[in-house]
Nucleic acid binder design. Sequence first.
DNA 1: TCTGGCCCTG
DNA 2: CAGGGCCAGA
Length: 621
Amino acid sequence: MNLSLPDQNMHNSSNTCPEDDKPDIMLPCFRRNMYDEPLASYSNGSIISQLLRKTIHNRRALDESSFYLSSSTAADSGQEDQSSVSSKDSMVEAPSPNGHISTAASPEGEHPITDHLQAKRARVENIIRVMAGSPNHKQHGDSERSDTDARDIREAREAYRENKRKQRLPQHQDHSVGGLVGRRSGSSSRDNGNTKDEECHKLKEQLHSMQRLLRQLQQKFLQVYNQEDPEHDDRDERDAAAEGQTKVVDCGVQQKENQNIQETLKQELSRAVNECVDRVFKKVSSTGLDFSPQLHMCSSPEMQINMGYYESSDAQRPQDQTEALSLVVRKPTVTPLSSVTPTVKRPYPVHQTPFPFNYSAPLHDSQILEHLLKYGPHSSFGGLPCMPPSMERSSPDSVDLPWETITMRSKVTSSHLNHHPCPSTLGTVTVDNLCLPHVKIECGELQSRAERNPYMSLNISFELNKTEGLTPSHLKKAKLMFFYTRYPSSNVLKTFFPDVKFNRCITSQLIKWFSNFREFYYIQMEKFARQAIVDGISDVKDITVSRDSELFRALNMHYNKANDFHVPERFLEVAEITLHEFYNAVSAAKDSDPSWKKAIYKVICKLDSDVPEEFKTSSYL
DNA sequence: TCTGGCCCTG
DNA sequence: CAGGGCCAGA
């Protein structure tokens, strides 16, 4: 009769007890907590654990009355901290899932279950059901309860309190079997002795270790499935109790299918990338550009100077751009720098930290692919483990990501850069910093796929955003701009940093950058001017600034550290003029005046030249 | 008052 | 390179 209680009890507890509904709002993988662990274990398949449970259960059946008294008392904790938990635990644990109470006789054949015990158990089970269903008792069917039941409840409460007083051992590892066994031992030791408890304890420990392993496996598996098919997982959850071992087989099959899909995806992607690389290489070779991979992987600074930004710009064709757009930036304006332009700053970067968007660790192409494989194209990059969960959200127009967190966590980004780099920066910085043709080709391929995939294009669309913070790339760009303008106006800055969302703070920071640049510049000028005087140079005309000059090297090292930018000739002229100014002023002992430099500044600020248009593109660097 | 620039300091 | 103080000009 009541022996086949598992399903019924579970339904009762979940239907009548509001607290049991709470786990439903949790993620499925978290729903399988330690309290419904027995259910998960049974349904999902540890055969060994099931066998162990049978053994334990068979032995436990020897003293059913005390056991169920414990169970019921455990359930009677409406005023205690673990009421619903304990009751649920009891519900699942007490009856055999396979109804093998009837086989409860132990292998030794000792102590069959008496009718008396069965009757008493059935009564107590009824109590348990009612109590578990309504922790407050008053709300549900109080009137229907018999006096006998009420008396039993009172007894159970008393017994529970007594047992609880006795029980001082930590329970945190005994929520399922152990908790019950632990409570039971107090009342059953009279009959069965310590040996049995020890056996039970050993078995319990074995069972727990196996359950832990199983739980880990389940959680991993569930996490995978929750990512891919939440509905499927929910269905599995609902059917878990009935399906039992079948699911073990299902899981194996699904896992295999999963692996197959993964492999297929990988193969398909690498094939597409290979084809793309071939296509672009063909195209590039048809343009006559020298484009060997080795050249780009290991290009030296000298070579980069020869193939510098502007001197080589005539060799760049707009059509090259169409083949190698970065993943997230496809600008309507044609970038003068072809993505295949050999502007490689350093060997192929590999990511060094678990933080994929670290500026010191540009987004690896495989990371992009890995992400797409792992989380799907619609996941957005917020799905990366390092990202705060709030990044998951996205909108059709833009992906509004709280990038401050990312920047703050960047190892390289110093405190002053704790602003709000936005997705377009992501595209610009990470992909551009890759500076590798095949990466961009791949990105181009992804882009073309994105055009066919409405979900994927969500990620592409954030190129329309502007960054709310300045990045190392912006700093580098500003330094290069300094070769043209020492005193850029706010408007010039806004013009040449179109991907930056300007506000007062950003403007001030950019202005501050140039102020710092000037400071270094003037310090060098004064230093070399004084050195010239010390060296005995008497004629200012003997002082020149060329690319071989120490002064130029110092400046170039500061503003163009990677030496991948061809400094315009005009800068050499301005530097020479500045040096002359300082030389003359110091020679004339004007430096005794505290504000003697102001006159020089006034001269130099008029020597600014126009910054080339190429700097206007946000993806310039 | 705001902005921009320089100077000093860390 | 940034922060803060100070100053000058609009």
